[in-house]
Simulated scan of single mutants.
Amino acid sequence: MALFDTELFAQKLEQLAPTQQGIEGLSKWCMFFKSELKKVVATWDVQFQKAGPEKRLSFLYLANDMLQNGRKKAPELAAEFYRVLPRALKTMHKAGIAKDIARVKRLVHVWGERRVYSPNTIKQLQSLIPQEAAAPSSSAPPAKRAKTVDAPAAREAVMDKRLQPMATAFAKVSKAEVQSNKLLLALSPVCRKGLENDGSISELVKAQLPLKDYTGALENEVAGREAAIIALKEAVAIQEKGIKDAQSKLQLSKQHLQKVSTRLETMRKQHVQQFKAKQASSQPLVSAGPGGASAEAATNAGNG
Protein backbone atom coordinates (compact mmCIF):
# COMPACT_ATOMS: atom_id res chain seq x y z
CA MET A 1 0.00 0.00 0.00
CA ALA A 2 1.22 3.50 -0.84
CA LEU A 3 2.48 5.63 2.03
CA PHE A 4 0.63 8.77 3.03
CA ASP A 5 2.49 11.95 1.99
CA THR A 6 1.81 14.85 4.38
CA GLU A 7 3.25 17.50 2.05
CA LEU A 8 1.26 16.22 -0.92
CA PHE A 9 -1.95 16.32 1.11
CA ALA A 10 -1.16 19.87 2.24
CA GLN A 11 -0.77 20.88 -1.41
CA LYS A 12 -4.06 19.22 -2.31
CA LEU A 13 -5.78 21.12 0.51
CA GLU A 14 -4.36 24.42 -0.72
CA GLN A 15 -5.70 23.65 -4.21
CA LEU A 16 -9.05 22.32 -2.98
CA ALA A 17 -11.86 23.70 -5.13
CA PRO A 18 -15.13 24.52 -3.30
CA THR A 19 -17.10 22.15 -5.54
CA GLN A 20 -18.80 18.83 -4.85
CA GLN A 21 -16.54 17.08 -7.34
CA GLY A 22 -13.36 18.50 -5.81
CA ILE A 23 -14.40 17.71 -2.23
CA GLU A 24 -15.59 14.17 -2.98
CA GLY A 25 -12.45 13.43 -5.01
CA LEU A 26 -10.10 14.50 -2.22
CA SER A 27 -12.25 12.66 0.34
CA LYS A 28 -11.85 9.39 -1.57
CA TRP A 29 -8.10 10.00 -1.85
CA CYS A 30 -7.89 10.45 1.94
CA MET A 31 -9.97 7.35 2.67
CA PHE A 32 -7.52 5.32 0.62
CA PHE A 33 -5.04 5.73 3.49
CA LYS A 34 -7.17 4.01 6.15
CA SER A 35 -4.14 3.07 8.24
CA GLU A 36 -2.89 6.68 8.25
CA LEU A 37 -6.09 8.50 9.18
CA LYS A 38 -4.50 10.00 12.29
CA LYS A 39 -1.92 11.75 10.10
CA VAL A 40 -4.63 12.76 7.63
CA VAL A 41 -6.65 14.51 10.34
CA ALA A 42 -3.57 16.07 11.95
CA THR A 43 -2.52 17.56 8.59
CA TRP A 44 -6.09 18.74 7.97
CA ASP A 45 -6.03 20.54 11.34
CA VAL A 46 -2.71 22.30 10.68
CA GLN A 47 -3.75 23.45 7.21
CA PHE A 48 -7.20 24.53 8.45
CA GLN A 49 -5.61 26.94 10.92
CA LYS A 50 -3.29 28.28 8.21
CA ALA A 51 -6.04 28.72 5.62
CA GLY A 52 -7.89 31.95 5.00
CA PRO A 53 -11.55 32.39 6.00
CA GLU A 54 -12.69 31.76 2.42
CA LYS A 55 -11.10 28.27 2.40
CA ARG A 56 -12.07 26.95 5.83
CA LEU A 57 -15.67 26.13 4.94
CA SER A 58 -14.43 23.85 2.13
CA PHE A 59 -12.20 22.11 4.68
CA LEU A 60 -15.24 21.42 6.87
CA TYR A 61 -17.19 20.10 3.88
CA LEU A 62 -14.27 17.77 3.20
CA ALA A 63 -14.34 16.59 6.82
CA ASN A 64 -18.10 16.09 6.53
CA ASP A 65 -17.73 13.89 3.44
CA MET A 66 -15.02 11.83 5.10
CA LEU A 67 -17.01 11.44 8.33
CA GLN A 68 -20.16 10.27 6.59
CA ASN A 69 -18.37 7.89 4.24
CA GLY A 70 -16.22 6.59 7.07
CA ARG A 71 -19.05 5.67 9.46
CA LYS A 72 -18.79 2.02 8.43
CA LYS A 73 -15.47 1.89 6.61
CA ALA A 74 -13.44 3.76 9.25
CA PRO A 75 -15.41 4.37 12.47
CA GLU A 76 -12.24 5.56 14.23
CA LEU A 77 -12.23 8.62 11.95
CA ALA A 78 -14.98 10.31 13.99
CA ALA A 79 -12.85 10.15 17.14
CA GLU A 80 -9.80 11.52 15.31
CA PHE A 81 -11.75 14.46 13.89
CA TYR A 82 -13.35 15.19 17.24
CA ARG A 83 -9.89 15.95 18.64
CA VAL A 84 -9.56 18.91 16.27
CA LEU A 85 -13.14 20.02 15.54
CA PRO A 86 -13.57 22.14 18.71
CA ARG A 87 -10.58 24.29 17.75
CA ALA A 88 -11.81 24.50 14.15
CA LEU A 89 -15.27 25.69 15.25
CA LYS A 90 -13.70 28.27 17.56
CA THR A 91 -11.65 29.56 14.62
CA MET A 92 -14.83 29.88 12.53
CA HIS A 93 -16.45 31.71 15.45
CA LYS A 94 -13.61 34.25 15.61
CA ALA A 95 -13.86 34.91 11.86
CA GLY A 96 -17.48 35.90 12.48
CA ILE A 97 -18.77 35.41 8.91
CA ALA A 98 -22.52 34.99 9.40
CA LYS A 99 -23.26 32.89 6.31
CA ASP A 100 -20.38 30.50 7.08
CA ILE A 101 -21.47 30.10 10.71
CA ALA A 102 -25.01 29.24 9.55
CA ARG A 103 -23.60 26.54 7.26
CA VAL A 104 -21.42 25.15 10.05
CA LYS A 105 -24.51 24.88 12.25
CA ARG A 106 -26.21 22.94 9.49
CA LEU A 107 -23.24 20.56 9.22
CA VAL A 108 -23.26 19.83 12.96
CA HIS A 109 -27.02 19.27 12.80
CA VAL A 110 -26.55 16.76 9.96
CA TRP A 111 -23.91 14.90 12.00
CA GLY A 112 -26.48 14.53 14.73
CA GLU A 113 -29.24 13.39 12.37
CA ARG A 114 -27.04 10.77 10.73
CA ARG A 115 -25.53 9.67 14.04
CA VAL A 116 -21.98 10.52 13.13
CA TYR A 117 -21.61 11.63 16.75
CA SER A 118 -23.60 10.93 19.90
CA PRO A 119 -26.22 13.47 21.09
CA ASN A 120 -23.92 14.56 23.94
CA THR A 121 -21.07 15.18 21.52
CA ILE A 122 -23.35 17.14 19.17
CA LYS A 123 -24.44 19.35 22.08
CA GLN A 124 -20.79 19.98 22.93
CA LEU A 125 -20.02 20.98 19.34
CA GLN A 126 -23.11 23.18 19.12
CA SER A 127 -22.06 25.02 22.27
CA LEU A 128 -18.92 26.18 20.44
CA ILE A 129 -20.95 27.86 17.69
CA PRO A 130 -22.25 31.38 18.48
CA GLN A 131 -25.96 32.05 18.52
CA GLU A 132 -27.15 34.49 15.89
CA ALA A 133 -28.25 37.84 17.24
CA ALA A 134 -31.93 38.67 16.70
CA ALA A 135 -32.57 41.31 14.06
CA PRO A 136 -33.94 44.58 15.46
CA SER A 137 -37.68 45.12 14.91
CA SER A 138 -38.73 48.05 12.73
CA SER A 139 -41.40 48.94 15.31
CA ALA A 140 -38.96 48.92 18.19
CA PRO A 141 -38.66 52.14 20.19
CA PRO A 142 -35.65 54.36 19.51
CA ALA A 143 -32.52 53.29 21.30
CA LYS A 144 -31.65 55.15 24.46
CA ARG A 145 -28.45 57.11 24.61
CA ALA A 146 -25.67 54.92 25.89
CA LYS A 147 -24.44 55.68 29.37
CA THR A 148 -20.93 56.99 29.73
CA VAL A 149 -18.61 54.32 31.10
CA ASP A 150 -15.31 55.24 32.66
CA ALA A 151 -12.20 53.73 31.08
CA PRO A 152 -11.13 51.48 34.02
CA ALA A 153 -14.60 49.92 34.22
CA ALA A 154 -14.60 49.35 30.46
CA ARG A 155 -11.19 47.63 30.60
CA GLU A 156 -12.36 45.44 33.48
CA ALA A 157 -15.43 44.42 31.48
CA VAL A 158 -13.23 43.49 28.50
CA MET A 159 -11.00 41.33 30.71
CA ASP A 160 -14.03 39.60 32.23
CA LYS A 161 -15.28 38.85 28.73
CA ARG A 162 -11.91 37.38 27.74
CA LEU A 163 -11.88 35.07 30.75
CA GLN A 164 -15.51 33.99 30.32
CA PRO A 165 -14.80 31.15 27.80
CA MET A 166 -12.30 29.62 30.23
CA ALA A 167 -14.73 29.84 33.16
CA THR A 168 -17.51 28.33 31.04
CA ALA A 169 -15.26 25.50 29.82
CA PHE A 170 -14.17 24.57 33.35
CA ALA A 171 -17.76 24.66 34.58
CA LYS A 172 -18.73 22.21 31.82
CA VAL A 173 -15.81 19.93 32.73
CA SER A 174 -16.91 19.86 36.35
CA LYS A 175 -20.49 19.04 35.36
CA ALA A 176 -19.37 16.31 32.93
CA GLU A 177 -17.08 14.74 35.54
CA VAL A 178 -19.88 14.61 38.10
CA GLN A 179 -22.17 12.95 35.54
CA SER A 180 -19.62 10.32 34.47
CA ASN A 181 -18.78 9.47 38.10
CA LYS A 182 -22.48 9.16 38.88
CA LEU A 183 -23.00 6.74 35.99
CA LEU A 184 -19.91 4.78 36.98
CA LEU A 185 -21.32 4.13 40.46
CA ALA A 186 -24.54 2.81 38.95
CA LEU A 187 -22.68 0.78 36.33
CA SER A 188 -20.87 -1.89 38.34
CA PRO A 189 -23.76 -3.93 39.79
CA VAL A 190 -25.72 -3.84 36.53
CA CYS A 191 -22.90 -4.75 34.17
CA ARG A 192 -21.08 -7.34 36.25
CA LYS A 193 -23.29 -10.19 35.05
CA GLY A 194 -23.49 -8.83 31.52
CA LEU A 195 -19.70 -8.84 31.21
CA GLU A 196 -19.40 -12.41 32.40
CA ASN A 197 -19.01 -15.05 29.72
CA ASP A 198 -22.07 -16.95 30.85
CA GLY A 199 -24.33 -13.89 30.97
CA SER A 200 -27.80 -14.34 29.50
CA ILE A 201 -29.30 -12.25 26.68
CA SER A 202 -31.45 -10.29 29.11
CA GLU A 203 -28.41 -9.53 31.26
CA LEU A 204 -26.47 -8.36 28.21
CA VAL A 205 -29.36 -6.13 27.13
CA LYS A 206 -29.56 -4.63 30.63
CA ALA A 207 -25.82 -3.98 30.59
CA GLN A 208 -25.80 -2.37 27.14
CA LEU A 209 -27.83 0.76 27.91
CA PRO A 210 -25.91 1.92 31.02
CA LEU A 211 -22.64 1.20 29.22
CA LYS A 212 -23.79 3.40 26.33
CA ASP A 213 -24.75 6.16 28.74
CA TYR A 214 -21.44 5.90 30.56
CA THR A 215 -19.49 5.88 27.28
CA GLY A 216 -21.37 8.98 26.12
CA ALA A 217 -20.68 10.71 29.42
CA LEU A 218 -16.96 9.94 29.15
CA GLU A 219 -16.91 11.25 25.57
CA ASN A 220 -18.55 14.42 26.82
CA GLU A 221 -16.01 14.72 29.64
CA VAL A 222 -13.05 14.22 27.28
CA ALA A 223 -14.47 16.79 24.87
CA GLY A 224 -15.03 19.22 27.72
CA ARG A 225 -11.47 18.83 28.96
CA GLU A 226 -10.10 19.36 25.46
CA ALA A 227 -12.21 22.51 25.12
CA ALA A 228 -10.95 23.65 28.54
CA ILE A 229 -7.34 23.18 27.42
CA ILE A 230 -8.03 25.29 24.33
CA ALA A 231 -9.63 28.02 26.45
CA LEU A 232 -6.75 27.86 28.94
CA LYS A 233 -4.16 28.19 26.18
CA GLU A 234 -6.02 31.18 24.77
CA ALA A 235 -6.10 32.78 28.23
CA VAL A 236 -2.36 32.15 28.65
CA ALA A 237 -1.70 33.67 25.23
CA ILE A 238 -3.67 36.78 26.24
CA GLN A 239 -1.62 37.12 29.43
CA GLU A 240 1.68 36.57 27.60
CA LYS A 241 0.79 39.32 25.13
CA GLY A 242 -0.25 41.52 28.05
CA ILE A 243 3.14 40.93 29.71
CA LYS A 244 5.00 41.97 26.55
CA ASP A 245 2.90 45.11 26.17
CA ALA A 246 3.30 46.02 29.85
CA GLN A 247 7.07 45.39 29.76
CA SER A 248 7.43 47.67 26.75
CA LYS A 249 5.44 50.41 28.49
CA LEU A 250 7.40 49.84 31.72
CA GLN A 251 10.74 50.31 29.96
CA LEU A 252 9.56 53.52 28.31
CA SER A 253 8.14 54.80 31.60
CA LYS A 254 11.45 54.14 33.39
CA GLN A 255 13.29 56.12 30.71
CA HIS A 256 10.89 59.04 31.12
CA LEU A 257 11.18 58.88 34.91
CA GLN A 258 14.99 58.88 34.73
CA LYS A 259 14.96 61.85 32.37
CA VAL A 260 12.57 63.86 34.56
CA SER A 261 14.48 62.98 37.76
CA THR A 262 17.83 64.01 36.23
CA ARG A 263 16.46 67.33 35.00
CA LEU A 264 14.80 68.00 38.35
CA GLU A 265 18.05 67.33 40.26
CA THR A 266 20.01 69.61 37.92
CA MET A 267 17.49 72.43 38.33
CA ARG A 268 17.55 72.06 42.12
CA LYS A 269 21.34 72.37 42.19
CA GLN A 270 21.21 75.43 39.95
CA HIS A 271 18.58 77.00 42.20
CA VAL A 272 20.70 76.42 45.32
CA GLN A 273 23.79 77.90 43.65
CA GLN A 274 21.85 80.96 42.48
CA PHE A 275 20.39 81.47 45.96
CA LYS A 276 23.84 81.31 47.60
CA ALA A 277 25.32 83.73 45.07
CA LYS A 278 22.49 86.21 45.58
CA GLN A 279 22.78 85.99 49.36
CA ALA A 280 26.53 86.59 49.23
CA SER A 281 26.19 89.67 46.99
CA SER A 282 23.61 91.32 49.29
CA GLN A 283 25.91 91.36 52.41
CA PRO A 284 28.21 94.57 53.09
CA LEU A 285 31.95 94.18 52.84
CA VAL A 286 33.69 94.64 56.28
CA SER A 287 37.36 94.58 57.27
CA ALA A 288 38.86 94.43 60.74
CA GLY A 289 40.93 97.45 61.94
CA PRO A 290 43.50 97.69 64.77
CA GLY A 291 42.25 96.12 67.93
CA GLY A 292 39.60 94.26 66.08
CA ALA A 293 37.43 97.31 65.33
CA SER A 294 36.04 97.73 61.90
CA ALA A 295 37.22 100.46 59.52
CA GLU A 296 33.79 102.10 59.65
CA ALA A 297 33.91 102.28 63.47
CA ALA A 298 37.40 103.79 63.40
CA THR A 299 36.30 106.50 60.97
CA ASN A 300 33.32 107.42 63.11
CA ALA A 301 35.53 107.67 66.18
CA GLY A 302 37.97 110.02 64.38
CA ASN A 303 35.18 112.34 63.33
CA GLY A 304 34.01 112.57 66.90
Rank of each mutant, 00 (worst) to 15 (best):
123 K>Y: 06
123 K>S: 12
124 Q>R: 14
125 L>R: 01
126 Q>G: 02
127 S>D: 11
129 I>W: 08
129 I>V: 12
131 Q>H: 08
131 Q>K: 08
131 Q>C: 03
131 Q>D: 14
132 E>Y: 03
133 A>E: 15
133 A>M: 13
135 A>H: 10
136 P>H: 04
138 S>H: 08
139 S>A: 09
141 P>T: 07
141 P>C: 06
142 P>N: 01
144 K>E: 15
144 K>Y: 05
145 R>D: 15
145 R>L: 12
146 A>K: 13
146 A>E: 15
146 A>N: 09
147 K>L: 15
148 T>Q: 11
150 D>E: 09
150 D>N: 12
151 A>L: 11
151 A>H: 03
151 A>P: 00
153 A>W: 06
154 A>V: 04
154 A>L: 12
155 R>S: 06
155 R>I: 13
155 R>T: 09
156 E>R: 14
156 E>C: 05
156 E>G: 04
157 A>C: 00
157 A>D: 08
158 V>I: 11
160 D>I: 02
160 D>R: 14
161 K>N: 07
161 K>G: 01
162 R>H: 13
166 M>R: 15
169 A>Y: 05
169 A>W: 00
169 A>P: 02
172 K>C: 06
174 S>E: 08
176 A>G: 02
177 E>V: 10
177 E>G: 10
178 V>P: 00
178 V>C: 01
179 Q>Y: 04
179 Q>A: 12
180 S>H: 05
180 S>P: 00
181 N>P: 01
181 N>E: 05
181 N>C: 02
182 K>R: 14
182 K>L: 12
183 L>I: 06
184 L>C: 01
184 L>E: 05
184 L>H: 03
185 L>A: 15
185 L>V: 13
185 L>D: 15
186 A>W: 00
187 L>A: 03
188 S>E: 11
188 S>A: 14
188 S>V: 14
189 P>V: 01
189 P>E: 04
190 V>K: 07
191 C>D: 03
191 C>S: 10
191 C>Q: 05
192 R>V: 14
192 R>H: 10
196 E>N: 14
196 E>T: 09
196 E>H: 09
196 E>S: 13
197 N>W: 06
197 N>L: 14
198 D>W: 01
198 D>Q: 11
199 G>R: 03
200 S>Y: 05
200 S>F: 08
201 I>H: 10
201 I>T: 09
202 S>G: 10
203 E>Q: 15
203 E>R: 05
203 E>F: 03
204 L>R: 14
205 V>D: 11
205 V>H: 07
205 V>G: 00
206 K>V: 04
206 K>G: 02
207 A>H: 01
209 L>M: 12
210 P>V: 01
212 K>P: 00
212 K>W: 02
212 K>C: 05
213 D>I: 00
213 D>M: 04
215 T>K: 15
216 G>A: 03
218 L>M: 12
218 L>E: 03
219 E>Q: 07
220 N>W: 05
221 E>W: 05
221 E>L: 15
221 E>R: 10
221 E>N: 07
222 V>M: 09
222 V>A: 10
226 E>C: 00
